[in-house]
Amino acid sequence: MLDPRTPLIFDGHNDLLARIHLKHTSIEDVVGGSAKGHIDLPRALKGGFAGGFFALWVPSTQTGASANGSQESGNYTDVPLPGMVAWEDAIKVVISEVAIFQRLAAAGVLTPCTTVKQLKAALPGEPMAAILHLEGAEAIDPEFYTLELLHAAGLRSLGPVWSRPTLFGHGVPFRFPSTGDIGPGLTDLGKELVRQCNRLKIMLDVSHLNEKGFDDLAAISDAPIVATHSNAHAVSPHARNLTDRQLAVIAERDGLVGLNFATAFLRDDGRMIEDTPIEPMLRHLDHLIAKLGEDRVALGSDFDGAIVPKDIADIGGLPALREAMRSHGFGDDLMAKICNGNWMRVLARTWGEEEEL
């Protein structure tokens, strides 16, 4: 009988660090299994959640509507975004969240990893294998001193924007129906950020970039093009999803897309509601595989940052997704690639470890 917890899942995106920073849950609750949200250690073991990218994310300091606030009503069809967050505000939050990441490691929840060798060694263990990711570069200064500092602290993945504008570029709004062809792309400073990340071998994430920013990044970067938590626009025409043209660029650059579990980006009506079946996830996976190939599709849940289908609910419910994938006809080899293997492949290419593995 197949173990419902295998293959182990390595995931492209979660917001646990921000959730703890905002005091919506605690490190003690994550250790003990009573965390208010999607992720804690006992549920990780139950669901076969072996780890993933843990995001540093800065909440907006401005007043007004926020993307997260709209989730309660399910209205994710046109969410006004706040303006730019100042570096002085952002860096304080990011320092706090890096400290939370380190405290989770000290508590036996995470194993921080900066190489694929470390990831592979950590995956079977009880602590979750963890990559430090920056979602939105508000905490990076124009001289890139904080980029160097965060890299020294373990940062190995970065998205230039979280939808709202930064000094580095412009993102997509939470709008349905819409394409991501909205507004200008990367600034001159944003283009230099891409070069600096290439130099440091920090993976670049295009998930929240608008189409012009996506094209700017693709024109400069010498690394695979990766969307850690995005879906197919052809299946659900949300601005956050990737068009077939963008998918073709990702395939050409031997990159990867991690399937986002957020229901607003899965559904054909753009609503962020829990009452959503797993079936749309399979339709997105089918389309992504058809456009990218079996080696360039993975998972990027957005746990603790979005509403996910009710039959999954949290990381403890991941066996339901595996069962649905198998029933849909995904074989063992494809399951292993989507659940963890494809992340290892693209990270080895991005981090320069191909010859070592």
Rank of each mutant, 00 (worst) to 15 (best):
M1A: 03
T6M: 12
P7C: 08
P7R: 06
L8S: 06
I9P: 01
F10I: 02
F10A: 01
L16F: 13
L17W: 11
A18C: 15
R19H: 14
I20Q: 06
G33D: 09
G37A: 13
L45Q: 13
K46F: 01
G47F: 04
G48F: 04
F53L: 13
W57A: 07
T61G: 15
S73N: 09
N75W: 13
Y76P: 03
V79S: 08
P82Y: 15
D89M: 10
I91D: 12
K92R: 15
S96R: 11
I100T: 09
I100S: 01
Q102C: 09
R103H: 12
K120Y: 06
L123K: 06
I131R: 02
I131F: 15
G136A: 10
T146A: 10
L150W: 05
H151F: 13
L155E: 09
R156N: 10
P160M: 06
L167W: 00
L167A: 01
G169E: 01
H170A: 00
F174S: 12
G180Y: 00
I182D: 02
I182F: 00
L189V: 00
G190M: 01
C197P: 05
R199F: 06
L204T: 11
D216R: 02
L217F: 08
P237V: 09
R245F: 08
A248D: 14
V249P: 01
R253E: 11
G255V: 12
G255E: 09
A264L: 11
F265N: 09
D275K: 15
T276L: 09
I278K: 11
H284D: 14
L288D: 12
L288E: 12
A290E: 15
L292S: 10
E294S: 15
E294L: 10
D302K: 08
V308D: 06
P309R: 12
I312P: 04
G316W: 03
R322D: 06
A324D: 05
H328L: 02
D332Q: 11
K337D: 04
W351T: 10
E355A: 14
